[in-house]
Design a binder for these strands. Structure first.
Lengths: 193, 193
DNA sequence: TTGTTATTTGGCCGATCGTTAAAATATAGG
DNA sequence: CCTATATTTTAACGATCGGCCAAATAACAA
């Protein structure tokens, strides 16, 4: 069975590809750049991952796994509910304003760029959003029981509204890359809970 | 001076180009498709607009002019403040769920796709967002004077938070294209004002 | 050692990319 | 009618696109 062993680490290659796709998106990323940034030869890359599209799926899935973990860790952390939500938004702002990378959320871009063209991306995006929605819903339920946030509407509805606010914030980070503006959005959002 | 007269209508060509860019984005749109959908010859198109990039600027500007007009008309309309905000969000939902076109907001996609790569798009996006922000700010100020919305935070802050909610809603329309979900987001957002 | 299998290497495929050049064509001014 | 100017038409440019293939290579099983 086993022939010549692979000389590369799949995880490292996917991580490198993720970095490229994250910066450029799917369409604007060339196979050539993937070859250069992963360090693999052209043939090796296609032998291992099949196509640019499949490699993109791997990279996006990886991104979302890391993202959901980082975000859930913040939301499941200690402190008041609103403080955790603020921490999540600050985490997003800091990421979007990174002066060296200067790139937004890959998951958001993926959904906008590939929805309607790649059913696999649609599925992956849905899973990601739904997971974040569930984490948020649980958090709002906790906040409601403790009386920290309004109990006037279902926790799921609040979670969904916050989800939109959070994604909108990440979006605005691309066009309005000023901390004062984004933190104003953040405070306005928190004040409405 | 004047040589052979143009055989096409600039406005119609920009409208056709806008339609293509709206559906595909910038990167995924080829010069070939622009030629086919505008009806112009390759040479004519480049003679008239210079490059794919410049034509994209024209198309995006056109889109935003139409968008800001339609949205301002809704927000400046009759009725309660919250009803106008609801009407705006419903307008967005209806557009995003259009069963035939199935494409989101071109301005959002443009900001995500081209920010950091095309300073002109950054400028155009900023202008558009700032205008919508101003219209919303005025509306919230009206709502605060009439007591319809909370006066606990500045109108500008509320406008910005709503802006994020609205853009987030449009974003979610791409990944969660179900009216029930989106209207839940909408109601949750309105309830927080 | 001798197959067998999987990976690496490097070049190369046809197609398409955005853009341009040249020649033909149509108007206005003189 | 003639010249100048602007647009149309058509073909083609070099570059790059995503993907593939044959030969060389390195491990395992027998």
């Amino acid at each position: 069975m086993s022939g010549r062993p692979r000389e590369f680490d799949d995880d490292a290659v996917i991580a490198a590809a993720m970095d490229v796709f994250w910066s450029n998106g799917y369409e604007a990323t060339s196979a050539q750049e993937l070859v250069e940034r992963t360090g693999l030869g052209r043939g090796s890359l296609y032998n291992a991952f099949g196509s640019k599209q499949k490699l993109y799926h791997e990279a996006l899935t990886r991104y979302q796994e890391q993202g959901i973990q980082a975000q859930a860790q913040i939301l499941d952390g200690p402190g008041m509910v609103k403080e955790r939500l603020r921490a999540l938004m600050l985490w997003g702002i800091d990421g979007d304003l990174d002066p060296v990378k200067r790139r937004g959320c890959m998951a958001l871009f993926a959904a906008l760029e590939r929805s309607g063209k790649d059913p696999a991306v649609e599925r992956i995006s849905r899973v990601y959003i739904t997971r974040l929605e569930q984490v948020l819903c649980h958090l709002f339920a906790v906040g409601q029981r403790s009386g920290e946030v309004s109990s006037g509407r279902p926790a799921l509805t609040m979670a969904r509204a916050f989800l939109a606010s959070y994604y909108g914030l990440r979006l605005l980070g691309r066009s309005m890359p000023e901390r004062a503006f984004l933190e104003d959005v953040m405070e306005g959002t928190l004040a409405g809970l």
